[in-house]
């Protein structure tokens, strides 16, 4: 399985090192793995001691607030998109980056099209598993399509307003 890895401002197609462990499957001992929220909650005390990269998968209705104390232990959070209309995890990703200071990987999974991955990146995602039968290699150009942003998000890109006023120092509205 390949995915798009967007790190250091540089998107590339890579092989996926991670395993999404099914509900009743055994945890691998030799490679990083993600668990469902339910399984993570049931087993987290026991898993804390293991020397293994772990991640949690959140379905679109599941909230990151349930795992806030665990964030330092997690290397990856996979946020699922069941369809094109469910955009809740765009907010989840921003909260993870901007409010909860999560520095691990945030991965988009499910019905992910190339048309969503640039806004996802702006919200803090940095790994993308495209929907089945979608061409991963050609999708990396999606990050180059829109170069101007109007609003601050989880990325470091200066907004149009910031670029317009870069010459002079800051002033606040009265």
């Amino acid at each position: 399985m390949t995915l798009i890895d967007y790190r250091n401002e540089n998107p590339m197609v890579t092989d996926d090192a991670w395993t999404h462990v099914a509900e009743d499957a055994a945890l691998p001992t030799d490679r990083p793995a993600t668990l469902s929220l339910q399984r993570w909650k049931a087993a987290r005390e026991e898993l804390y001691g293991r020397n293994l990269s772990l991640g949690v998968r959140l379905e679109s209705h599941e909230r990151v607030e349930e795992i806030l104390p665990d964030l330092p232990r997690l290397a990856l959070i996979a946020l699922d998109f069941p369809n094109l209309n469910d955009g809740r995890h765009f907010t989840t990703a921003r909260l993870l980056r901007e409010r909860y200071g999560f520095h691990g990987k945030i991965r988009a999974t499910g019905q992910v099209l190339r048309d969503q991955i640039d806004p996802m990146r702006r919200c803090g995602f940095n790994e993308f598993e495209l929907a089945e039968n979608k061409d991963t290699a050609s999708a990396i150009t999606a990050f180059d399509e829109i170069s101007v942003v109007y609003q601050p998000a989880a990325d470091a890109q200066p907004t149009a307003a910031q670029l317009r006023h870069r010459q002079s120092g800051p002033t606040m509205a009265g």
Binding site: Q116, P119, R122
Partner: peptide, 14 residues
């Protein structure tokens, strides 16, 4: 208009 245009978080609202 500018803030809402291609807003990355609010492009797939309910």
């Amino acid at each position: 208009r500018q803030w809402s245009t291609l807003h990355p978080e609010f492009s797939f609202l309910p």
